[in-house]
Amino acid sequence: MADDFIISDAGTGALLLDVAGGGAFDEGRQARLLALADSLAGADGIDDVVPGMNNLMVAFDPLAIDAGAMQRRLADGWRIAAASGRAGRAHEIAVAYGGPDLRDFAASLGLTVDEVVKRHAGAVYKVAAIGAMPGFPYLSGLDPALATPRRAMPRQGVPKGAVIVGGGQAGIMPITAPSGWHILGHTDFTLFDPHRAAPATLMAGDTVRFIIAGVER
């Protein structure tokens, strides 16, 4: 099981370690990946260590680090990575539930708005990865009853602060941008501030709970 991984080239100066084995997202493997990420970050010649969902991309200076050596380092690191890595911080994020999608979203699942809110705010989410947009958290732990396909047509401007779900994942919009996910509410929680040295508020390994600040039915 521990050897169930693939390492592929992502150009001249990056490698992608994929430990998903083509299957569904796995929390245990993610915890091990984050421990591996921490052991690589900041090493000489390594530019970026990017956890994804059950994968890890490492970007390096290919004129300083041999790709073959980097590949062995990833493979060996994955085999010995323990899940005890990051402690992670706990965040509580207040959400005003409502917005353009909430009622239709509930109806499409055969649930009431209150049931959707209760299930969404009832879960403890894990920040699996940060990416795509500045500070955007990929949250795992969504109640499977709230898993739905994305919207057929993405919205051009989903506003900053929108609390969203798509497929089996949850997230929060750090900036106004296009997205095909469903909007369940809004938060004033700041996810990204480029003027801080660590610009993203959430980190992979953190946990998130949503607190009900109001429901517009």
Partner: peptide
């Protein structure tokens, strides 16, 4: 595919 990091040139 599950979401993964990408670099310019992908």
């Amino acid at each position: 595919l599950l979401s993964h990091g990408i670099v310019p040139g992908t």
